[in-house]
């Protein structure tokens, strides 16, 4: 069991490589996709950790790995004091029930042939979490109310709902087993602005009511600032900076974090004109042959010889503010 100071989730040295096809003469070279490389972080009960990165940063793989939905190459994950990298079978299933996933696409992640009631009830049935039909119906009704859907939603099909309402259905399903941790992978990025705000507010209300912890994976830095307590910035499979929300947004140390923040357009023409922008040249590196040393060195405006050779470790510069950069 977890001690008083032990976080709800602790991830250490998480590394995930995928086979990436073959190359070379007669395909003798096996390629590896280095999706996540030595990633460590913690999440406390009731806390939101924002995990931000661009395409290929490894943020989605990190979220899946935490739920053990992809095989780990190395690293350890403790959930509520249990090392979930070592266990399997029934024990893993029991712990997994307490960690749920909310998907990005509310259109693709709901079975169109099931009623909303059955979709929300499914985890309860699979995990034998309720006794009898009556309790099941009651619990589904309660979940729908919790996420702000009308009770008659239970008998309808996902097709009948808008994007924002479908995301509410996805959230109701994720909450069915009363999880402690919800991994939300781009939960609002497919939604329109006015609807996005509704879902963000719902997630914050649920966190307050139920004491949920969120791993909130997103590329939208404005939404992440709004919802997170702490933020981790990923680049090419590694965390380059990890700190409290205000430290990341007001006192960013890593050149990538700075460039990323300055690239986010602000809906205010006057502010937008006055801002100094760091426009990064070049492209996000290939995860098959990531650059040596600091993976950001190929685009970094400050890079020196050392950055091309030696990997900078993620070290604590100020209390609670970690950064992986030789020059920060």
């Amino acid at each position: 069991m977890r001690g008083a100071t032990e976080p709800l989730l602790r991830v250490e040295g998480l590394t995930v490589n995928y086979p990436g096809g073959r190359a070379g003469w007669l395909g003798r070279e096996r390629l590896l996709v280095h999706a996540v490389d030595d990633v460590s972080f913690t999440i406390s009960q009731g806390e939101t950790l924002g995990l931000v990165g661009e395409t290929g940063s490894g943020k989605t793989t990190t979220g899946r790995a935490v739920l053990r939905r992809v095989p780990l190459t190395s690293g350890r994950i403790w959930f509520d004091g249990h090392d979930i990298t070592e266990i399997g079978g029934r024990e893993l299933r029991r712990l997994r029930a307490r960690m749920q996933l909310v998907f990005q696409d509310p259109y693709a992640s709901l079975n169109p042939r099931m009623t909303v009631g059955d979709i929300v009830a499914e985890p309860l049935v699979v995990h034998h979490a309720v006794q009898g039909r009556h309790e099941l119906r009651e619990r589904v009704r309660e979940l729908l109310r919790l996420v702000g859907l009308p009770p008659d939603a239970a008998s309808r099909y996902p097709m009948a709902f808008s994007g924002g309402q479908r995301q509410r259905i996805g959230i109701a399903r994720a909450l069915a087993l009363r999880p402690d941790l919800v991994v939300a992978d781009e939960p609002v990025s497919a939604l329109d602005v006015s609807i996005r705000a509704q879902v963000v507010n719902l997630m914050q209300d649920l966190q307050e009511q139920l004491g949920l912890a969120y791993l909130f994976i997103a590329h939208d830095l404005a939404v992440v600032r709004h919802i997170s307590h702490r933020v981790a910035i990923m680049y090419a499979g590694r965390i380059v900076e990890l700190a409290g929300r205000d430290d990341i947004y007001e006192r960013p140390l890593h050149p990538y974090t700075r460039a990323l923040l300055s690239a986010v357009p602000i809906p205010d023409p006057a502010t937008q004109r006055e801002r100094r922008r760091v426009v990064l040249r070049g492209e996000i590196p290939s995860p098959i042959r990531p650059p040596a040393g600091c993976r950001f060195h190929t685009r970094c405006p400050l890079a020196e010889a050392r950055c091309r050779v030696e990997r900078p470790p993620l070290v604590e510069r100020h209390p609670g503010h970690r950064v992986a950069c030789w020059l920060a």
Partner: peptide, 24 residues
Amino acid sequence: VGLLRSTPRVDVVHPRLIAIEGSP
């Protein structure tokens, strides 16, 4: 007004987003 209020800004800390209720 609603669109601007419901859009979070990266340079500002919002107490709470003000959503436009309902859908189009």
